[in-house]
Amino acid sequence: MTVAPNQIDLPDTSETYEVDRAWQVVVWNDPVNLMSYVVWVFRKLFGHSLEQATRLMLQVHNQGRAIVSSGPLEKAELDCHRLHHHGLWATLERA
């Protein structure tokens, strides 16, 4: 174990931020999954509020797709995998 440093130097570029935001998880509309179920999945997997999850669900329903999370590739693929486990149609795309 080690102790936390008293002072750290912040990087002077936004490279880390760009890497963290490299991928987006897109959920696509399907005609079968219930609206109430999709809202529940968004809340459970991503910790969205009821209002935020409902807004995303309606975006999926009305516009055909919505970005529900984003991050590095490994995290985005894991999110996609969890959505598939819950029966939702999800894909990845670059931010």
């Binding site: 509309n29 399907d30 005609p31 079968v32 999954n33 179920y37 529940w40 329903h61 486990h85 819950h86 029966g87």
Partner: peptide, 21 residues
């Protein structure tokens, strides 16, 4: 919840359901 949801997807495929409404 997940098993029921999967079963609904399977049944919808059997019924040829592809669009909302």
């Amino acid at each position: 919840m997940r098993v029921i949801g999967e079963a609904r997807l399977a049944l919808a495929a059997m019924l040829g359901i592809e669009k909302d409404g």
